[in-house]
Structures are given as structure tokens and as C-alpha cells.
Design a protein around this nucleic acid. Sequence first.
DNA 1: TAGAATCCCGACCTTTTTAGTCAAGTATCG
DNA 2: CGATACTTGACTAAAAAGGTCGGGATTCTA
Lengths: 153, 153
Amino acid sequence: MKLSQRGEYALRAVLVLGMNHGSGVVRIRDIAQQQNIPRRFLEQILNDLKSAGFVLSKRGVAGGYRLQRGPNEISLADIIRHLEGPLAPVGCVSVNYYQRCSCPDEGACAIRSVMQEVRDAIVGVLEGVSVAHLCERVRDLQGPLENPLDYII
Amino acid sequence: MKLSQRGEYALRAVLVLGMNHGSGVVRIRDIAQQQNIPRRFLEQILNDLKSAGFVLSKRGVAGGYRLQRGPNEISLADIIRHLEGPLAPVGCVSVNYYQRCSCPDEGACAIRSVMQEVRDAIVGVLEGVSVAHLCERVRDLQGPLENPLDYII
DNA sequence: TAGAATCCCGACCTTTTTAGTCAAGTATCG
DNA sequence: CGATACTTGACTAAAAAGGTCGGGATTCTA
């Protein structure tokens, strides 16, 4: 039931971009430094997020990344699904990535019905939280600061 | 956010033992056949469940496995935790297997607070379902049958 | 228009995990 | 005794995880 390191890094990076939304692009280097993420690895991840349409990039000297859509249009579920595949604990209860399992009778499988509930619980939380919500939480958790740049994400 | 094949097999096997609780032991072979689980692999898994104290075994001709504790004393959370480790999606919100993560300030980490909720949601379901509950669901899902042996799990 | 900064892309690498398999041994029943 | 089951530990192949690296393509600025 694990989120991979890659997935966690992606969320942290997106959150940084969320906090800086509206004020130009942010460099990979800065995100990596602030978040303790290996720079080269983060490059790879952001590239992936870019081809998935979550972020945009700008090349050259004043280059960097920013969110493509608004922070309130991206849910954590979206991001994690793209990076990790199904949110469901087993394929046979996944809505987006259904896969039949090897049990004798799927329709009457009790384990499946429990996993269904687990899936719904997970999705319920993750669909309900957008990047914008996440940014709000950052502000709530850290109290009001003078300078937006001082927020530690 | 995945349950491994091994974990799924374990749950299925335990459920079979749950359904047969009180009527002696069940052979590996029978569980494997009924549940489409590779026999040798299942041996390994049951052994693991045995050393963890979930099941007991009996050797020899009329040998097999049965639950060690009562079906209502074993929750799915227990089993999965033993097999897969933490239920939490990230180590920094795990109660039983806590591990610090690399983010700058864990206390004020917004992602962590969301993952906390995800963890609680997962644990909420899985702690609440015992093997006995699972057996009930089997009966509910399949309707009342003549012979207890006819239940397909 | 050169050069520095930045993203871009694909290949590569190492370690760990997953999903099994297998052989030989030990206990038990009849 | 001998057939039947569990026991134990080693072994393996394939995939995933977690990165690293070199060199290319853009863009800004002096």
C-alpha cells in the first residue's frame, strides 16, 4: 500500500509549483534544493509530469516549470494515478485500471468487497484534495508569514 | 498503493481456513486448488503465517492447516501488516513502522497531513474487518447453501 | 553572436522486491 | 513400513525502484 519515492517527489514538486503559481516559472534546481530531491531524478519526474500535461516548461536562461492548469483543477488522485497506476489495492476493484484476478468467483468474492471499500476510502480522500487545497494547508500549518517565498514546503 | 500477490493469496487462504474453522485442518493442496494458487508458493506463505502465529499446522497423513486464534480475533489489518509491512502510504505517517522522510519540515508538511488521512481511511476499513466478518460476507454474497463445503471462496 | 544557463532525451546502472520453483527432510497415520 | 503432508532453506528469473550520466536543444543577455 505504498507510494513510491518517485510519487512522493512528484507531489512535493507540484506543491512547490502550486505555491508559486502566478509568479513565473521555478527552476528544477531550486525545487530540488528546497525539497531535498536528487536533481537528476527530479528532471526525469518533471519531464514525465510535463508529457502528462500537468506542468509546462520554459527553456533557456530564465527557464523553469510552472503548472499548466490551475491548482484547483489538479487533484492528488490525478497525479498519483499517472505516476503509479491504480489507486486500488488490487486490480479487480480498480475503476480505471481493472484487471481480473485469479479468484474462483469474482462477483461473490468477500475479499474483493472489502478491497472495494478500501479503494473508495483512498479515492475519497485523494480525489477531494486539489493542489490548491494543499497550498491552503501549507498556509494553515505554517501560520501567516510576511513573505510568500518564506513558506517551507 | 498495491497489495502484493503474496498478500492477496494469504488473505484468500486465511479466509478458506476461516470458513472451515472448527472442522479440523485443511490441506495446502485443497486450498491451492480451490483458490488457483501455485501450491509451492502457498506452502511458503502458510509457513510464514504459521511462524507469525496466525495459523497452526498438523503434519502427516491427515495433516493440514487451521487458524490458531478465533476468526473474530484476526483482522485483515493484522495479516496485511505482517505480510506487507506498513498500511500507510508513506513511512512518515505510519504508526507501527514510522520512518522520517526527506521533506524539510515534517510537522508542517501538507502532503503528510493528507497522507495521514489516507492512512486513517485505510486502517479504518482494514482494522474493522475480521476473518469472521469476511466469512459472514461470503455467506451473504452467496446466499444460503445446503452444504458448508459448497461455499466458493 | 558567443556563451552561459536551463530544460530535454534516452540510455544506463545497481539494488531490492516479487513471484515463484525445487530438493530433500521430518512427522504422522494406518 | 510406506504413503501422505508439512518443513526448511536455497535458488532463480524477471520486474520495479531509485537513481545517474552524457550530450543535445533553447533561450536570454551582454
